[in-house]
């Protein structure tokens, strides 16, 4: 048994677990890496949402970011798969027990270089899971090469100048029909946590593009994936509150007329308090315009950019049982009766 700390001063959540029950192995990433703060927010979000760790699976590809699932949720099943191929593994894995929540971590190289094809297709299929791109514009484990999200004109010590147009994860997600698209900045812990919570209650594919600076290879203040630039240029779309299903919204909690409430498939709500832009995240055309404007204005727009809570997910389309997961079925469910062999032979000639 993994010990749950029983000391009186340790706070337990509704499922009787302490925050420690959501931790993983000590990180081996660099000190100050944006990925570590995202791991911490995954731990906090799961704890606060009262997720039972065994009811969640975690997946990743290959790269610095993909190492991070070892550093959270020790009690969840995990799969550190192949470079750029996590989406296919996740797609198949969701059929085993589709009642589980899934959270996947990928990087900008893993997603937009080697993994672009699978990234696009997992969105098409609306696989019910959270897909976090820890986006720093460089390859860390292989020592600082450009990824496809590195901005044009970026100059790095060994690589020189990047002459190519960057891929925008959020734009790609919109183009592929993702049903939950958000962007955040690893330095904004509260927003990251609120978005992870919202994403976890989405019935479909939730893309979180989180700018997560690489302190070793890409943290010069003029780089768009640096802490300096992010802090300077971040422009949150809304003040963001996630209200789980179990917790009702209190009347008067939010000032009327300045908020937009989105009800998720599972009954949870996202309350968005309008800031300057007054963005409606349920409008696809508004989302597209917003992304375009942000690029032209060179600002890092963060928050929930687009959500469509009621699209059927892949496991809905597959018409799986609501009660019994596939991986609990037995021979009696799976092997046709003996008499059916006659049917098989009769089908031939």
């Amino acid at each position: 048994m993994t010990e749950t700390a029983q000391m009186p001063n340790v706070q337990l959540n509704l499922v009787g677990l302490s925050k420690n029950d959501y931790r993983g192995a000590p990180t081996t990433l660099c000190a100050g890496c944006g990925h570590n703060s995202i791991s911490n927010q995954i731990i906090a979000a799961a704890y606060e949402l009262n997720v039972v760790p065994e009811e969640m699976i975690k997946l990743s590809g290959i790269g610095c970011s993909s190492k991070s699932p070892a550093y959270f949720l020790n009690r969840s099943f995990g799969f550190n798969s192949l470079h750029g191929r996590m989406p296919s593994v996740a797609t198949g894995a969701m059929f085993g027990d589709h009642r589980l929540r899934a959270l996947a971590v990928s990087g900008d190289g893993d997603t937009t270089n080697i993994g672009m094809g699978q990234f696009k297709h997992i969105m098409r299929r609306n696989v019910p899971m959270v897909y976090i791109v820890e986006n720093n514009g460089v390859y860390g484990l292989t020592k600082g090469q450009f990824s496809a999200t590195a901005e044009k004109g970026l100059r790095l010590k060994y690589q020189g100048l990047n002459p190519f147009t960057p891929v925008d994860v959020v734009e790609e997600a919109m183009a592929s029909g993702a049903t939950f698209v958000a962007r955040s900045f690893a330095g904004d812990a509260n927003q990251v946590k609120a978005l992870i919570k919202a994403a976890l209650s989405h019935n479909g594919l939730a893309i979180l593009d989180i700018i997560s600076p690489c302190v070793t290879f890409n943290n010069e203040d003029d780089s768009r994936h640096s802490y300096g630039w992010g802090r300077e240029h971040q422009e949150p779309l809304h003040d963001f509150t996630f209200v789980p299903r179990e917790q009702e919204i209190q009347v008067g909690e939010f000032p009327e007329g300045t908020t937009k409430t989105v009800t998720m498939h599972d009954g949870a709500t996202i309350v968005l308090k309008k800031l300057d832009r007054g963005h409606d995240p349920t409008s696809r055309s508004a989302a597209m315009k917003l992304i375009d404007d942000a690029r032209n204005e060179a600002v890092l727009l963060t928050g929930l950019i687009y959500v469509e809570p009621n699209q059927p997910s892949l496991t809905d389309v597959a018409e799986l049982s609501t009660n019994r997961p596939l991986n609990r079925l037995t021979e009696a469910d799976l092997r046709p009766d003996k008499s059916m062999i006659e049917t098989a032979n009769a089908m031939m000639f």
Binding site: I57, F79, S81, L82, R85, P87, S88, V89, A90, T91, G92, A93, M94, F95, G96, D97, G117, Q118, H121, R125, A318, E319, L320, S321, T322, N323, R324, L326, N327, L329, D333, L334
Partner: peptide, 28 residues
């Protein structure tokens, strides 16, 4: 109540085997 199987036409063979491996891992 529900199907006892799932079938996906993948985007390529890499994804096809990746999905099958993911499903195998999940006990299918």
């Amino acid at each position: 109540d529900g199907k006892t199987y799932g079938i996906v036409q993948a985007e390529d063979e890499l994804a096809a085997i990746g999905m099958a491996v993911g499903a195998g891992w999940s006990g299918l």
